[in-house]
Write a protein that binds this DNA or RNA. Sequence first.
DNA 1: TTTGACGGTCAACGCGCGTAGAGTGAAATG
DNA 2: CATTTCACTCTACGCGCGTTGACCGTCAAA
Lengths: 204, 204
Amino acid sequence: MTSSDAHLSRDERRRRTESTILDAARELFADAGFERTTIRAVAAQAGVDPALVMQYFGSKEGLFGAATRWNGEHESILTATSDTLAAAAIDDLLSHFEHADDREAAVALMRNCLTHPTALAAMRDQVMCERKEAVAAAIEGEDAQLRAGLFAACMVGLGMVRYLIKLEPVASASPEALHRLMEPALQALLAAPAAAAPGPTDPS
Amino acid sequence: MTSSDAHLSRDERRRRTESTILDAARELFADAGFERTTIRAVAAQAGVDPALVMQYFGSKEGLFGAATRWNGEHESILTATSDTLAAAAIDDLLSHFEHADDREAAVALMRNCLTHPTALAAMRDQVMCERKEAVAAAIEGEDAQLRAGLFAACMVGLGMVRYLIKLEPVASASPEALHRLMEPALQALLAAPAAAAPGPTDPS
DNA sequence: TTTGACGGTCAACGCGCGTAGAGTGAAATG
DNA sequence: CATTTCACTCTACGCGCGTTGACCGTCAAA
């Protein structure tokens, strides 16, 4: 950060530094999780003083919130029809976790969503809920909400097992193989319930 | 822990105390995660001095390892045939997370498997790997390992969404509804790859 | 009855963390 | 040029954590 930015204007330099800190934070939050990541480590990786991180983001919480912001644009699932839902969901997963710029942010959010309140809330109330509604809207039937939720659960499981737990051979499977094997299963989940139990879903 | 156990023999009293500590640890690890759970809090909940916890388990790591031990007995998936796999897997999930005595242990393991090295290793190398092999052995075909892994991923996703993220209506759905909706999807995952893509449908 | 082992407690240490506030020097402003 | 603004650093505080070793009372063995 002290090499080739002496010519930049003040606020551009500031934006640059802020973004460097955010990148460092994303990487560490994604790799080690919230609790095991220290402000000092983020600052060191960004080549900056720890106090500056506090000054910019207010607190470690603030830094985490700024670093793990889910980018819901370009989600093909939001515009999919009932028979392209499965493929769209897999495409979205791959794009978020493999080619996207915000890959680290997605990993960081997912890594921490079981242990960090903010990440949990974001995961449930933003990421999952919105996508679940999109799926539920695209299918019909009495169990639409539940089926959409289970659909989301399978996608979450796939993401966690592939990108965080890294269970082989799921972690190294090709996108084509994922599409080929997962799509029929997801479509079975979305298909109208044949004729099993009558009556609505009743929690016992 | 000082009420009605004065009459117990020394080593039985010791075992009782140890188990009380383990119960407290499981509950806190399951609710708050490893990092947010303090030895002091575990000791307080067990009605015991923090130093005793160290004396028994050596370290916080040791306590965590002892508290989150996966109980792989009575798993019906290990003896299932290819067409009962899906039902067996759902039954196992329900039994581990709802009526089992080690429910807290299962939740604790799952809650921490994304952020704690020991929990991650246990999850991947014990829990998932063993069950994945059982599934792979019960089905045939070229992608048996991958399909078994994706099967496991869906089950992990279901568990996390239902018991940790608690996304509605998945969290409150009845066991019957889970069976009814998930089984067809899981079976589609295990079925031999039909003829969707120009893929190598493997003859035996 | 003496003696030792052992379940359990007490007080404290040292470290690393998040955080705060004063300070510095260069860029913007007039 | 004088002044202000602002990105950034330095130093340090206070707290809570995991962990330790000395200590106490009681039960079992000799």
